[in-house]
Design a protein around this nucleic acid. Structure first.
Lengths: 174, 174
DNA sequence: GTCTATAGTCCGATAGAC
DNA sequence: GTCTATCGGACTATAGAC
């Protein structure tokens, strides 16, 4: 993608929308037709990730504890991302360099959490449990994803499982 | 505060920085000296909340499990907010009305989480545990705060404790 | 305190697909 | 003809530079 190249060359802030549009061979106006704003080029505008997570929650077997449902959902979602590791690394580096991009990423995760709460409730999970399970699931995914990017000795799915085990140890009373 | 009044009257997006500055009796330029951007007027620019959380983590007795340290820290932080409930309600309503304000709030919580990780590590907590404990603590604070705003039968501290108990039930294996 | 660049919106015009 | 995608230009507000 033209935008990611330019962000790598000049940095995110120093790259104007006009420059991105020019490299992509369209006008500024057309850029804004495809992306609501400049930040959105780095995120999955189609909502494919969210859709995959919701579908996985719906498809999980009845009676599975909510936190296990979440673990499966994020393992599935991870496969959507893990396929293109080089892209994920470049993208993560750019996001780490700019606070407004971090804001957008956090908002996407929050929307993912909200969608997960809805999907769990549709399975009959009560509200407090659904909220906390979705919150824990997203946090575990976030931590697991960061670890996988930093060190790929394990797969993304394994990193997510590892983070969930860590959370269990931390939260359990001693 | 002038900004909160105007946001309530016209809505956040429809309120220009010029209008806020005018009502406050200063120039636009002065506004941007005090606040990095328009959104920042609704957040604690002085970092008092973060400072309080870090201080509470440092002050916790030795040997306390990390998640209990976090619970205490957020009970303390909550007291800083809970004092002015009417303000908290107005502020929450404005933030709920605008996506860019939600982004900023999530970033503040993420910075709080990062500061908590550092403070836990300074106490000698290992990295995976520190990250997950801080993450769980912030999530529990977020959920507890939302519940307290929606229904004040219980105090904020009680709501936070309640959310932590819910998290334990959700995460524990059945 | 002024001056300017950039993000993002609105309206209308144009060109190609079917 | 209609529908959709692109474009052009003017416009406002934020935010940073001088």
């Amino acid at each position: 993608m033209a935008a990611l190249e330019l962000f790598g060359e000049r940095g995110y802030e120093q790259t104007t929308v006009a420059a991105i549009a020019e490299r992509a061979g369209v006008t500024e106006r057309t850029f804004f037709r495809y992306f609501a704003d400049k930040r959105e080029v780095l995120f999955d505008s189609s909502g494919g990730l969210q859709h995959g997570v919701v579908a996985a929650i719906e498809a999980a077997p009845d009676g599975l504890p909510p936190i296990e449902v979440m673990a499966r959902a994020f393992a599935v979602a991870g496969d959507l991302i893990a396929g293109d590791r080089a892209f994920a690394e470049q993208r993560a580096a750019v996001i780490a360099s700019d606070a407004s991009l971090q804001e957008r990423e956090l908002l996407k995760l929050e929307r993912l959490r909200q969608a997960a709460v809805e999907a769990l409730r549709d399975r009959g999970v009560a509200l407090p449990a659904a909220e906390l399970a979705a919150g824990a699931g997203v946090a575990v995914f976030h931590v697991g994803f960061a670890r996988w990017l930093a060190d790929d000795d394990l797969t993304l799915a394994e990193r997510i499982r590892e983070a969930l085990d860590d959370l269990r140890h931390v939260v359990v009373e001693h």
